[in-house]
Design a protein around this nucleic acid. Sequence first.
DNA 1: GTCTATAGCGAGATAGAC
DNA 2: GTCTATCTCGCTATAGAC
Lengths: 195, 195
Amino acid sequence: MARKKNSSADVTGPRIRSAALRLFARHGYAAVSMRQIASEVGVQAGTLYLYTPDKQSLLFDLMQNHMQDLLSELAALPDVQSPLAELQQFTRFHIRFHRARSDAVFIAYMELRNLEPKNFERIEAMRRQYEAHLEGILARGKAERLFDLPDTKLAAFALIAMLTGVNTWFREGGRLSLDAVEEIYWRMVKKAVGG
Amino acid sequence: MARKKNSSADVTGPRIRSAALRLFARHGYAAVSMRQIASEVGVQAGTLYLYTPDKQSLLFDLMQNHMQDLLSELAALPDVQSPLAELQQFTRFHIRFHRARSDAVFIAYMELRNLEPKNFERIEAMRRQYEAHLEGILARGKAERLFDLPDTKLAAFALIAMLTGVNTWFREGGRLSLDAVEEIYWRMVKKAVGG
DNA sequence: GTCTATAGCGAGATAGAC
DNA sequence: GTCTATCTCGCTATAGAC
């Protein structure tokens, strides 16, 4: 639909969210002021309140969008046949998805404590859903005796922590390409569930 | 040495650090006020400045003490013979040490961004030293062909992330004892470096 | 060693002009 | 849709009494 006017409203909202994402990741939710966000976008502080009811909602929206993206991209992965192939697909997906969104990943983990209880519960439910997906893969592999795992829940926690850890050290243009990193991590994952 | 007076100074300092540790871990450095810390200890806000020059120094002291404890306890571990035995010892030590200090661990990771550059560099140097210790174990094991690892640096990062992850879900009195958790993680670590 | 009091500042959020 | 101006609050840090 053609627009009558050159409205900046459709671009200011996303720019606010983008600036908030970056600033929250860099300095922490509590340490970032609404004025800082506004200044980054090039508007006055009051203007932010046309796009979000308050600072808390801004944080929650960022985290909710991130988790929804995560779950919907996970669901959109092509079907594969064996638990081993599923696990490889999950491993590579997790590294790639998280690497491409390091700010959002950081926030979704660090700022959980700054969510109001109701908002916290909604984010946590999505995180549990993601973990359950991996645990399902591990449980199927265990049932088929492809994997040797005394506890699939612990194994899911352990693997997710290991894979998410890539974000703490990986830098574009460093010693290894992301492809190479994926390969090395996949080898460790495969051996760890071993197999 | 016997004390002349029943001074509370020797107890107030530690209590301030202990309250700050818990509050920073729970709500984040930026979100915690000096008034909150003082109120927790049962003194007025101004009193805190007898024990710390400012809020930033308080944070840095907590992180520095934590890292120094980590390195000195690591150094105090009894000598063992093979890289595999060393790795097992490291695995169990890491889980136990970090589990017992979950607040400090959380802070040492989350609040790095709230350190002034100079303080940041000092903490980072200690963290690299710890990582280098694990990488040394892995490199020795690789040299003896006990471990099959394409990249010992990545493997060290991956293992530390995996082990530290225990802190995000483990609860005393839950389904598994810490001993059982150590055993399950050690099995996964051993297979992952495999071996 | 701890208190009360306060200086000086910056925060989140709102009102109303344009 | 954005601005300026402002309300109200809580912050870090300090001064000085006891």
